[in-house]
Design a binder for these strands. Structure first.
Length: 472
RNA sequence: GGCGGUGUAGCCAAGUGGUAAGGCACGGGUCUGCAAAACCCUAAUCAUCGGUUCAAAUCCGAUCACCGCCUCCA
């Protein structure tokens, strides 16, 4: 079967053909670490983690690189405001990022490079662009000659004339006066204040511009041409456009085969983009104090990466409901696998499993259509729940189903903790007492015991196979 | 102004020419001593108008509304 991926460059779904059979090289633009990530940032991380996990599910070996932008204007300003250093600020929020994403069950990248650890390579890269005539130095700044790159604007379908007009409205005069052309962008910025973080370079003390670091790290760690480059839709222009210009001007090779952009998290009735400038964001750090990370993760994974998600309480609640159902199914599945009853062969069930797997893959292969995939997963749970109510179950088939369901849930970043088969004597004793009471039809005592257990956070389920319990 | 996206039942949402998947919520029912869990049943003609076609949510045209990028942003 063929996987199809929507390529922003061509605005079409294309057959995915990796550069090297069985391997995927992926670069995803990471955060600027001057604050906790908010849910919109998390969406991007989750979307590409899900994509990565699906590639892995399909047997690909994924080399996944995601950077930290640990120096730029915002970093400098924030550090200044907090009377700390850019380095300390970076340490703090990189740590927070790793904690938040771990809670959301994000697989760490194969590599998390940082801009400030690549300064030498960045300088060499910029120098190369100067040598090739694609860049020029002015008063310690270095700019990229955008017009010289023939395909400038190809990713975002912008034409130079329009860009120029747009740029003229937003340009700051000082920068404008230095540039040869308003559409040029900075590769290197000269140090402005004495105490401002800076490195020595052929153009004096300064620091890298924003776009260059990704070109450098992507080519350095993954090669001149990579399979997939990802990020939020807001990075299409100018960030990714500029990355293409920088990288292809330097290497003379195609930079990226498939550009993938995730949709935004929106907020409120108007469905506005969640963003720092609109002050309508919720940080992951804060929200996880109130909600189960697994629920947030599943909610964010449950919409195809290109579509917007309108963040809502309802959506979270729905995700939680569905998640609980899977948890119950798996729990009941385990109970039946462990019970004493004879097994039987249910060919209908076995066929259903085979078919579900094929359908799941078909859905996901189509540009990660998670809505359809989840619908198939949901149906599988229904099939299993029905089967589990029978007096005799097909244990080998259930084992297979369990593996399938767990593997699928993992693609969406959900892994239920193995219920430790903790032999809690006290609870077992209370349940035994309750069973005794029920046998004697002493409902008052039975209900009293159930309430007592409930108070301890224990949920009771009476089934034809006996009483089961789990923690709420 | 340029480029892009969205509009399907109360809510989320699939579906890109063949006559509207699925989920949540609501309601009804089955099972249960009662619960819990689970299962079953139940709803929309697809923003508006016009066109093409035997046939359109799906194609074409126009209109309306909302969002995003073009300036730091996942």
């Amino acid at each position: 079967m063929i996987m199809k991926v929507f390529n922003t460059l061509t605005r079409k779904k294309e057959e995915f053909k990796p550069l090297v059979a069985g391997k995927v090289s992926m670069y995803v633009c990471g955060p600027t670490v001057y604050n906790y990530i908010h849910i919109g940032n998390a969406r991007s991380v989750i979307a590409f983690d899900t994509i990565r996990r699906y590639f892995e599910y399909r047997g690909y070996d994924v080399n996944y690189v995601s950077n930290f932008t640990d120096v730029d204007d915002k970093m400098i300003n924030e550090a200044h405001k907090e009377h700390t250093t850019v380095e300390k600020l970076a340490e703090r929020y990189i740590k927070a990022f790793m904690e938040d994403t771990e809670a959301l069950n994000i697989e760490p990248a194969t590599l998390h490079p940082r801009a400030t650890h690549e300064i030498k390579e960045i300088i060499d890269f910029v120098q190369d662009l100067i040598d090739k005539g694609f860049a020029y130095e002015v008063d310690g700044d270095v700019y990229y000659r955008a017009r010289k790159f023939p395909n400038y604007g190809q990713l975002s379908d912008q034409n130079i004339a329009e860009l120029e007009e747009g740029a003229s409205e937003h340009i700051n005069e000082e920068e404008q006066s230095k540039k040869e052309d308003p559409i040029d962008f900075a590769l290197w910025k000269a140090q402005k204040e004495e105490d401002e973080i800076a490195w020595d370079s052929p153009w004096g003390k300064g620091r890298p511009g924003w776009h260059i670091e990704c070109s450098v790290m992507s080519t350095k760690y993954l090669g001149d041409t990579i399979d997939i480059h990802g990020g939020g839709q807001d990075l299409e222009f100018p960030h990714h456009e500029n990355e293409i210009a920088q990288s292809e001007a330097k290497t003379g090779r195609k930079f990226v085969n498939y550009w993938m952009h995730n949709g935004f998290v929106t907020v409120g009735k108007k469905q506005e983009k969640m963003s720092k400038s609109l002050h309508n964001f919720v940080t992951v750090h804060d929200i996880l104090k109130q909600i189960d990370p697994q629920v947030l993760r599943f909610y964010m994974s449950s919409v195809q990466y290109r579509r917007p998600i309108n963040y809502s309480e309802d959506g979270l609640k729905q995700a939680e409901t569905v998640l609980k159902r899977y948890q119950n199914t798996l729990r009941n599945l385990d109970a039946r696998l462990n019970d004493e009853n004879e097994t039987l062969e249910d060919n209908g069930l076995r066929d259903d499993l085979t078919q579900a797997k094929a359908e799941f893959i078909e859905a996901m292969d189509d540009d990660f259509n998670v809505q359809n995939a989840l619908s198939i997963m949901y149906d599988l749970a229904t099939t299993l729940n029905n089967h589990l109510q029978k007096d005799q179950v097909d244990k080998p088939a259930l084992k297979r189903a369990k593996k399938l369901l767990i593997a699928w849930l993992e693609i969406f970043g959900v892994s239920f903790n193995e219920e430790q088969a903790e032999n809690d004597d006290e609870i077992e004793k209370l349940i035994a007492q309750r069973d005794e009471a029920r046998k004697n039809k002493d409902w008052a005592e039975s209900d009293r015991l159930r309430a007592e257990l409930q108070a301890k956070g224990i949920v009771i389920e009476d089934t034809p196979q006996g009483t089961r319990w789990h923690r709420a």
